[in-house]
Nucleic acid binder design. Structure first.
Length: 299
DNA sequence: CCGTAAAGACCGTAAGGCAT
DNA sequence: ATGCCTTACGGTCTTTACGG
């Protein structure tokens, strides 16, 4: 068996797949079902909704409040856990787009069966039941904190030719990816977990066993002054301890001694203070702002 | 001679069937 | 009920060898 770049059959040729009956390979422009799905997606903020769904799925798997983890690439995350991001993402996407869970694949969009697929690697594992059907394929690039998605009819003729994995799953051949997959949106940034901005030494201090939460939260807010800190990050730093949010409220005075004002978006006047510094604070966001020389009002 | 496309070995959870 | 096996679904990751 030669293993070079696959030469694929062109649109118009007979597909080798019989999963959906004998059929002709269809390029996106000639694929009315694919066009129907595109039309359905058009009025949606696909990139934005996917960004939220991916962030939620990753946070769910990391489970920072219990595990203290904040990086899906870390060795503390098992490959099986990384794989489970795809399972969670599917349901986050269905919820975000108000789509039903519906056979024969993951959902129906404009009445057309569609599979929701994701990878943190370089290709997808297309199961045999999805061969020749439509798939929304999302690539999550953890190292660069970004993602993008395509809509593609995964004709069996356009997949790898081997046996695939044990279950018969196959990847999408690059030519089909390049020529017959429709980008839904280009590379889109994922929210950055502020903890990833710390230097290794800072990280080890903030996430250490000792000292207690208040000292470590103080360090974190100081290191990350000016960066928005979501509630979930505070929970991660306080993983395994009790009531991290209470501890966060308790470090306001320590930070004040360093000339830092700790703001919590839960309170309108603190949101206003942040807004005065051109920062939009969500209801669950915190931030330590350098306010030397200003009148303190956020106590 | 090395980067990358392709192949396929392998992993975890859940659900269903069937024999205790 | 309980245990055991198989299938289904969600994937990662390492190995192989083509081809520039």
């Amino acid at each position: 068996m030669s293993r070079g770049r696959l030469v694929l059959q062109e649109p118009g040729d007979l597909c080798m797949g019989t999963n959906t009956g004998e059929h002709i390979l269809r390029a996106p422009a000639e694929d009315s079902e694919l066009q129907d799905v595109l039309s359905w997606l058009a009025p949606h903020d696909v990139a934005g909704l996917y960004t939220g769904a991916i962030a939620n799925a990753i946070d769910y798997v990391l489970d920072g409040a219990r595990t203290g983890r904040y990086d899906l690439q870390s060795g503390e995350v098992h490959p099986g856990e990384r794989a489970s991001v795809g399972a969670k993402l599917e349901y986050e996407v269905l919820r975000s787009f108000s789509l039903p869970k519906a056979a024969p694949l993951d959902t129906l969009i404009a009445g057309v069966p569609v599979d929701i697929k994701a990878t943190v690697g370089a290709n997808w594992a297309i199961p045999s039941e999805a061969h020749c059907h439509l798939c929304i394929c999302t690539q999550i690039q953890l190292g660069r904190n970004r993602h993008r998605s395509w809509l593609v009819r995964t004709h069996k003729s356009w997949l790898y030719r081997g046996k695939g994995n044990r279950d018969g799953k196959r990847g999408l051949a690059v030519q089909a990816w390049d020529k017959w997959s429709v980008p839904l949106y280009d590379w889109t940034p994922l929210p950055v977990n502020p903890l990833t901005l710390l230097t290794p030494e800072q990280t080890s201090r903030v996430l250490a066993e000792k000292p207690g939460q208040e000292e470590r939260l103080t360090l974190m807010f100081r290191y990350l002054a000016g960066h928005i800190i979501p509630r979930s990050v505070i929970s991660t730093v306080g993983a395994g301890r009790h009531d991290p949010l209470r501890r966060a409220r308790g470090v306001r005075n320590r930070l004040a001694k360093d000339g830092l004002t700790l703001l919590c978006g839960k309170f309108p006047e603190q949101r206003d203070t942040a807004a005065a510094h051109a920062i939009t604070l969500g209801p669950e966001d915190w931030i330590a702002l350098r306010t030397d020389g200003e009148h303190e009002s956020a106590g």
